[in-house]
């Protein structure tokens, strides 16, 4: 049952990224290129995606997930340094090529070697983050 929920969710996510054009880096970079010929498509994708999610969040209070467990608690709303610095770093990488994690994975079947290189580098970055963070924390503690 859990596997089915995850499979369905992933398939809807992938189909949505595909038909919306969000696996096309020229469209994504076109959205970020506000000083050039701006492509507003990404704003429509974001807006369209927020509607079902907004409704879903409204349905969570007083209920439990279908397969059991609890809904994720609201995390602390602290604006931390990792949140800001991490988001800036992500934005730079996103702007350089036009791929973020979802589309990078969704386009695996047609992304060619370029998509493969990006994906491997991205996974390496994700894998390297926890030790990197520990090293930074140690330096921060000494300073």
């Amino acid at each position: 049952m859990r596997g089915l929920v995850f499979l369905l969710s992933g398939a809807l996510f992938g189909a949505g990224l595909h038909i919306s054009g969000m696996t096309d880096t020229t469209r994504v970079r076109g959205f970020l290129d506000i000083a050039g010929t701006w492509d507003p498509t990404l704003a429509f994708v974001m807006g369209g995606a927020i509607v079902p999610m907004f409704i879903a969040w409204r349905l969570t209070p007083g209920r439990a997930p279908l397969i059991g467990g609890v809904f994720p608690a609201r995390p602390d709303q602290d604006i931390t340094r990792p949140l800001v610095i991490g988001s800036i770093l992500f934005g730079v990488g996103w702007g350089l090529v036009g791929l973020c994690p979802g589309p990078a994975i969704a386009s695996l079947s047609y992304g060619g070697w370029q998509g493969g290189v990006f994906l491997v580098a991205m996974l390496a970055g994700m894998w390297a983050m926890p030790p990197l963070r520990r090293a930074l924390d140690r330096r921060g503690a000494r300073a």
């Binding site: 369905l8 969710s9 919306s20 369209g48 995606a49 927020i50 079902p52």
Partner: peptide, 24 residues
């Protein structure tokens, strides 16, 4: 393009809703 964007977005959001309401 914007219409496909909107439709694709609705699918993405529905995927998110399935994962949230289905599995938390």
């Amino acid at each position: 393009a914007w219409l496909w964007g909107l439709l694709g977005g609705l699918l993405i959001g529905t995927g998110g809703a399935v994962l949230l309401l289905g599995a938390g």
